[in-house]
């Protein structure tokens, strides 16, 4: 039986983790590779790096981070943030990423998703959707970290991206992101039920029950969380066991590491 996945996400700026775990066993808490190793050892099902580096000249740092992670962690790695061209994707994959998340570039040019899926295969193309509630049961796609509206309906957009060859949707509720109030279940369920590809729920996780809700009520295939793991509120292994006890099929007791 296929298991639901927990995906810890790390925000990386100029090659450094912005908000990181502060466990004593880390030699360098700002090193994304150290954090990745920790999550791997804890049995994370995948890893996600979100590159938030603003300046173009510093953007090369992510390739080194990805390459060093791929040396140590033999698990799926998704990289998002600033993926705009076929060449960006190629460089990330060659560095050792398995999937790339495309967000703004998809909105600016939907054909880019089609082109990327044809070239590299749907399995490595994740379309990231940042959605905001604009009315009862209405959700709109936003870009630029939720600052720019697009006028595009989030559910229609998810369907279109699946049609264009996206292999997975990473769905973030901009209303819930950072609030610790839980996923926007209505949004998650609406998108997950509308597409045949897997949906990763993101934005708003504050408790382990929120993870359970994302799968049970939101119908997500995977749940992504950042701060509850970053700050050591919960360990990945603890979260997985909690979800399993709630009746969700999880991969328990298998770890990464060498």
């Amino acid at each position: 039986m296929l298991k639901n996945r927990i995906i810890p996400c790390l925000d990386v700026d100029k090659g450094r983790v912005v908000k990181g775990v502060n466990f004593v066993d880390l030699i360098d808490a700002g090193d994304p590779v150290e954090q990745a190793r920790l999550y791997d050892a804890e049995g994370a099902d995948e890893l996600c790096f979100l590159d938030i580096t603003a300046s173009h000249e510093d953007r090369e740092t992510i390739f080194d981070v990805v390459a060093r992670t791929a040396e140590e962690c033999f698990m799926p790695l998704t990289v998002g943030g600033g993926v705009r061209t076929v060449d960006d994707i190629r460089k990330l994959l060659l560095a050792g990423a398995d999937k790339v998340a495309i967000n703004t570039a998809a909105v600016n040019n939907p054909e880019f998703v089609r082109e990327a899926a044809l070239k590299f295969g749907s399995q490595c193309i994740v379309v990231a959707i940042d959605a905001k509630r604009t009315g009862p049961g209405k959700f709109e796609v936003f870009t630029h970290g939720g600052r720019r509206e697009t006028g595009i309906d989030a559910i229609d957009w998810a369907k279109r991206m699946a049609e264009y060859g996206a292999g997975e949707i990473l769905l973030t509720s901009m209303d819930r992101d950072g609030t610790k109030q839980g996923f926007d279940i209505e949004l998650t369920k609406a998108v997950a039920d509308a597409v045949t590809i897997p949906v990763i729920a993101s934005g708003g996780v504050g408790t382990l029950d929120h993870l359970v809700d994302g799968v049970k009520s939101g119908h997500a295939s995977a749940v992504l969380a950042a701060s509850i793991f970053h700050f050591g509120t919960y360990r990945i292994s603890e979260a997985k066991e909690y979800m399993a006890k709630a009746g969700i099929p999880m991969r328990i007791g298998e770890r990464g590491g060498k």
């Binding site: 039986m1 296929l2 298991k3 639901n4 996945r5 099902d45 749907s122 399995q123 292999g167 997975e168 045949t196 590809i197 897997p198 295939s221 995977a222 991969r251």
Partner: peptide, 11 residues
Amino acid sequence: SLKIPHMGWNA
């Protein structure tokens, strides 16, 4: 209700 692609960890 099972998604395609079959993506993730299976036993």
